[in-house]
Amino acid sequence: MVQSAPGDAVPRAGLSTTAVVDVALAVIDEQGPEALTLAAVAGRTGVAPPSLYKHVAGLAELRMLVGARVMDEMTERFAAAAMGRSGDEAVAVLMRGYRDYVREHPARYAALPPDPLHNPAMVAAGTRLLQVFLATLRGYGLTDSAAIHATRCARSIAHGFASIEASGGFGLPEDLDETYEQLIAMFVASLPRPDAPQRA
């Protein structure tokens, strides 16, 4: 991986698809997803924009590669956080990790498409991320459609709260951590308990 200080050009000899994505993420982190252009990346890599076509097919592909990288980062982070945990604890750690990622990387999170599973270039990364949620929910006996519905609920809570927070949308003084913990508790309480006694 090519390392560079913000605004520095990456040496031409070090240019690769991975390095181009690294620089694209640096542009996004500093200036937002709207600032990502081939010209901006080329300026940092020390090449003319046409030279980037040796590594990416164009801006659209670069955005897809960025999205896949972000999802892989999230997958690795969430899986590591949930490892060795189960049940309510695993769900809570996963949802806290989601919020933490958005708080730490709001711009690159905003660069994600809303539905990567319908993009052939991103479906693999999106599926890996989805599998982390599905694995966490198996302990509740949730599979197939029921697991997808529960995953959508968890994602809606985490994405909605974190996105509003990142945009400065919570203006009242009440503690945001407390609010988010209440949301996690509400979601966990909605999950089935396979070992609960059945009513006659």
Rank of each mutant, 00 (worst) to 15 (best):
E30I: 05
E30L: 12
Q31P: 03
G32K: 03
P33M: 04
P33H: 04
A35Q: 06
L36E: 10
L36N: 10
L36S: 10
T37R: 12
T37L: 09
T37A: 12
T37K: 08
T37V: 10
L38Y: 02
L38M: 15
A39R: 15
A40P: 09
A40R: 10
V41Y: 00
V41Q: 11
V41G: 11
G43S: 10
G43R: 11
T45L: 11
G46N: 06
G46I: 08
V47N: 03
V47Q: 05
V47F: 03
A48Y: 05
A48V: 14
P49W: 01
P49K: 08
P50F: 04
L52V: 11
K54R: 15
K54Y: 09
H55G: 12
H55K: 06
V56D: 06
A57H: 07
A57C: 07
G58W: 00
G58T: 09
A60R: 11
A60G: 10
A60E: 10
A60C: 05
A60Y: 00
E61W: 02
L62H: 05
R63Q: 15
L65G: 07
V66N: 02
A68D: 02
V70W: 00
M71R: 11
E73G: 06
E73V: 08
E73F: 05
T75C: 09
T75G: 08
E76P: 02
F78W: 09
F78R: 09
F78E: 09
F78H: 13
A80H: 04
A81Y: 00
A81W: 00
A82D: 00
G84L: 07
R85V: 05
G87T: 12
A90D: 05
V91W: 04
A92D: 02
V93G: 03
L94V: 09
M95I: 05
M95E: 04
R96F: 04
R96V: 08
G97E: 02
G97H: 01
Y98Q: 13
Y98N: 13
R99L: 15
R99G: 14
R99Q: 09
D100V: 14
D100R: 14
Y101S: 05
Y101H: 12
V102N: 08
R103T: 06
R103C: 07
P106E: 07
P106Y: 05
P106I: 11
A107K: 01
Y109G: 05
A110I: 12
A111M: 04
P113R: 07
D115A: 12
H118E: 06
H118I: 14
A121Q: 11
V123A: 14
V123W: 01
A124R: 01
A124K: 01
A125Y: 01
G126F: 06
T127I: 05
T127W: 01
R128L: 09
L130M: 12
Q131H: 12
V132H: 03
F133R: 06
A135H: 09
